[in-house]
């Protein structure tokens, strides 16, 4: 019961990711694309947590923590490149 509820929520999130990818495809400048990437990061972390809860596996949530910590590094790396500083 609860499992299919969480899975349905993650299907909805996947559809949100499809919409956010339109911004990554269209984005006229590179910062627009980075904004899309950032949004997709958060959505994917939440989708992972929901699917872990749906399949009743508590150990799956570690993957979400890894993503939440590491996606930040990618974002500031690209931001540093864009503002022209030495990395």
């Amino acid at each position: 019961m609860m499992g299919s509820l969480f899975l349905g929520a993650s299907v909805f999130l996947v559809i949100c990711i499809v919409l956010a990818m339109i911004r990554v495809i269209k984005g006229p400048t590179v910062p627009d694309r980075v904004v899309g990437l950032d949004t997709i990061n958060t959505l994917v972390v939440v989708a992972m947590i929901l699917c872990g809860a749906a399949s009743r596996e508590s150990i799956y949530i570690d993957v979400a923590i890894v993503y939440a910590l590491l996606s930040f590094i990618t974002t500031i790396l690209i931001a540093r490149y864009l503002e022209g500083g030495e990395i």
């Binding site: 990711i17 990554v24 984005g27 590179v30 694309r33 899309g36 990437l37 994917v44 993503y67 690209i78």
Partner: peptide, 16 residues
């Protein structure tokens, strides 16, 4: 640079 960002998106979705 945009290709690298799209590659990051691809690997993100691949991981999911």
């Amino acid at each position: 640079l945009a290709a690298a960002i799209a590659l990051a998106v691809m690997s993100l979705l691949l991981s999911l």
